[in-house]
């Protein structure tokens, strides 16, 4: 500020005062222009905000019209779609579109995944939130972040190349593609999700509740399990729901490790096909763009979308309620 230095004398006042009052008295920037720009920007922002609604609308519209084309086909009936457990869309003579076969496969994989991710994720969350010393947190948090950041195709590889051989070594009955291996990998994938959402919920419980319990002589276990977890229960449930939705929609792992034979079975050693797995099979094969089997992809996607939407919607609403309760 060279000009400023020269003015740093006792006589600065009159000089500077006059000049500045002249500047301040000068015409201001046009408010009309500013306001015009403001309106344009506001409209742009609102347009981007509405864009996300448009995406949802587009998903529903696209899935709905293509699903309608699917059901218009002579080869498909509602009774077959919702009532049959045989999914056989590709083979010529005996086509059958029983969605239950795919839902069953999805459920089996999800159940296996959740039996791993939910308990382990919750306990890890409790440990991180209530027990873990700083040093352990500093190791465990990045490990979970890395696990969460690994692409699903890598988990698929891990399931096929590592988990499946181990399972086969433990028990001879596992086939090369099996539900258990895919389920375990999906479980590992969902573990960080469960853990971080559940930890958020536990952290949201006010300190006062914990201090009150400690003040009554409770052990850490008592505080965590009897006070904090019940207080955070709805938050934890929402974490579970969001994780289940994630598992239901998981694609690459099941495409690689679960197999491509749609069958209604509850035997984790067997190969199964999930809804997502079927879509991948369709996309990676040479299927014409117009046949019933092509449209069946959309019908399956619609079913999948409704299932995951219901889960995330309930999960998010529960989460929001829970947060409001403690704010």
């Amino acid at each position: 500020m060279s000009s400023a230095d020269s003015l740093a004398t006792p006589t600065w006042r009159g000089d500077l005062d006059d000049r500045v009052s002249k500047y301040l008295g000068r015409s201001q920037r046009s408010l009309k222009l500013v306001r015009g720009r403001e309106t344009v920007i506001y409209v742009i922002l609102i347009a981007s905000g509405l864009f996300s609604l448009l995406i949802t609308g587009a998903i529903i519209y696209v899935l709905a019209i293509e699903t309608v084309s699917f059901f218009k086909s002579d080869e498909v009936t509602f009774a077959n779609f919702f009532g049959s457990t045989t999914w056989n869309p590709l083979l010529g003579g005996t086509k059958s579109f029983g969605i239950w076969a795919l839902i069953c496969g999805t459920m089996l994989v999800t159940a296996i995944a959740m039996s791993i991710a939910l308990p382990l994720g919750l306990i890890t969350a409790i440990y991180l939130s209530e027990y873990a010393p700083r040093r352990v947190r500093n190791v465990l948090k990045p490990v979970l972040e890395v696990l969460a950041g690994v692409p699903t195709v890598v988990y698929g590889f891990f399931a096929l190349m590592t988990i499946t051989p181990i399972l086969q070594w433990l028990h001879g009955g596992f086939s090369v593609y099996n539900a258990a291996s895919a389920g375990i990998a999906v479980g590992i994938l969902c573990l960080p999700t469960v853990c971080s959402l559940a930890e958020d919920a536990l952290q949201a419980v006010p300190r006062g509740l914990r201090e009150g319990a400690y003040g009554l002589g409770a052990t850490r276990f008592d505080v965590s399990v009897k006070v904090v977890v019940p207080a955070a229960l709805s938050g934890i449930i929402s974490a579970f729901l969001l994780a289940i939705a994630r598992a239901v929609g998981e694609t690459m792992i099941v495409a690689l490790a679960a197999g491509s034979l749609a069958q209604a079975t509850f035997d984790p050693r067997q190969q199964v096909q999930t809804m997502t797995g079927f879509m991948v099979q369709m996309a990676s094969g040479d299927v014409s763009n117009y046949g019933t089997e092509y449209y069946s992809m959309y019908a399956v996607a619609f079913t999948l979308f409704i299932m995951t939407l219901a889960l995330t919607m309930v999960g998010n609403i529960v989460r929001r309620r829970f947060r409001e309760a403690y704010e």
């Binding site: 400023a4 600065w12 500077l16 301040l24």
Partner: peptide, 27 residues
Amino acid sequence: HMKLSRTELQDVVEWALRKAAVWDEVK
């Protein structure tokens, strides 16, 4: 709010800081 040249802006800043009796500490 205003269209000011660089030196004019410097003047305004100095003036305001002097008025707020903080100029000597931050100049």
